[in-house]
Amino acid sequence: MATEEHSEGGLVFHPLDQFIVKPLFGDGPVHWYTVTNATLWMAIAVLAIVGVFVLGTRGRAIVPSKLQSIGEMIYGFIYKMVEDVTGKDGVKYFPYIMTLFLFILFANYLALLPMSYSPTSMIAVTAILGFGVFIAVTILGFVKNGAAFLGLFWMSDAPAILRPIIAVIEVISYFVRPVSHSIRLAGNIMAGHAVIKVFAGFAALTLVSPVAILGITAIYGLEVLVAGIQAYVFTILTCVYLKDALHPAH
């Protein structure tokens, strides 16, 4: 990247620099406990969630305030999703799914603020989320169903010859789940932010700057959609995996 700096007539492209993790105070190395820009924006996400869901619902009003009705809408949306996808017995996992959804949603949207940092664009973060869901769901499946959980891979209504083959495919797809689950989120967020940065780089060129700024605007609009949709997709897939764990029979 450094070599590109002075090529292309002074254009400077560092679309990935926005993802660099920096210590918030001083210039030291990044230890696991160091307070970094990632920490700051995760903290802002947590505070925003607390603001909406704790301060916003403080009034416990029968006729809700604006903030309270936002909280209630998100609550109702996720609650209904969990209930519809996993069934009645999945409702007790609602707080966990709500936690995932809120973290991703708020991190995604806060990342759209200029100069912000996007934790959900980092594979390390989304992999923890994705593999966390995967491990939790797998353990839950075996605890709830014992060996019967393996029935998830055994299509009893398929022809007998095909069953072992389908089982192999099912096992592979099962283990690919956390990978696609986490890369989907990180990839979407990272790509959008990087593209915006590339357009921003072109904006330095007087000739194309109107197009570039138009491009930034368009991509930004797209990213607003993507931020919500990816949070939704992550959450509903979590619900689907949870349903498989609770009811492994096809």
Binding site: M1, D17, I20, V21, W32, Y33, T34, V125, I128
Partner: peptide, 24 residues
């Protein structure tokens, strides 16, 4: 500037995981 993808930088991973878990 970043060398390669910051996402894959091993130095930063533990930090993010730790703070993610705290946040969650």
């Amino acid at each position: 500037s970043a060398l390669g993808m910051p996402q894959l930088c091993a130095d930063w991973i533990p930090n993010q995981i730790f703070w993610l878990l705290v946040a969650l």
